[in-house]
Design a protein around this nucleic acid. Sequence first.
DNA 1: TCGATATACCTTGACAGGCGATGTATGTAT
DNA 2: ATACATACATCGCCTGTCAAGGTATATCGA
Lengths: 113, 113
Amino acid sequence: MPIAADLIRGHTETIILAHLYSRDSYGYEVNKSIYEKSGGRYELKEATLYGAFRRLEEAGRIESFWGDENTGARRRYYRITERGRSALRENLDEWGDAKKLIDILIQTEGERL
Amino acid sequence: MPIAADLIRGHTETIILAHLYSRDSYGYEVNKSIYEKSGGRYELKEATLYGAFRRLEEAGRIESFWGDENTGARRRYYRITERGRSALRENLDEWGDAKKLIDILIQTEGERL
DNA sequence: TCGATATACCTTGACAGGCGATGTATGTAT
DNA sequence: ATACATACATCGCCTGTCAAGGTATATCGA
């Protein structure tokens, strides 16, 4: 994973919420989607993924239900709640602010790197 | 601190290195500088700051020396090393990549938030 | 002179998120 | 048969952050 995970830390839940905002989904698919969107440069570790799902559900930001596949491995689907959509909006705003702030804080005075 | 510290996490060392790239400095001043550049929205906790200095020095990215003030509290100054400058360049590159990646991963498909 | 405030350093213990490792089970392709 | 992909889940460790506490010097106002 060529992208330092430390830099993504703190965004895991936002990434998941953004995915679920578009459509209901399940763990494996969420992670495949991240992998594809990132051009194979990033994916969540399973322990990270399921830990985030647990926290999000405990916070009432997502709800889960078992899929009704009659073949293949069972899937636990997740659906974003209104609280989740609201949290997503806040997180996106915070990310915009944080991005600007970090850009300011890592500026070096005029020198060329 | 209206900016979520979780989003800055992972950038602490880069922020410090960027400051030291411009000039030698000491802990208190580094933090004041962050406070001012952020318009009062952010500052490092002291435990975080000094912890980062320790890690950076152990990694050979900075060097420290006592200031020669003959008045006021003593200051431990830090100087960035060549290894530190090199690490800074890498971190800035990674930040550029991470920024783009996160922006991609938190996109929602067409819907307006 | 006493207390508050600013400057300046540092450490300890706890916490939270992420991760490596491991385990379970079903289905498909060779 | 065996490997691989799909799909879920947990345990224990590691690391960066933070709250809280501690030390010391200098200044300013009451």
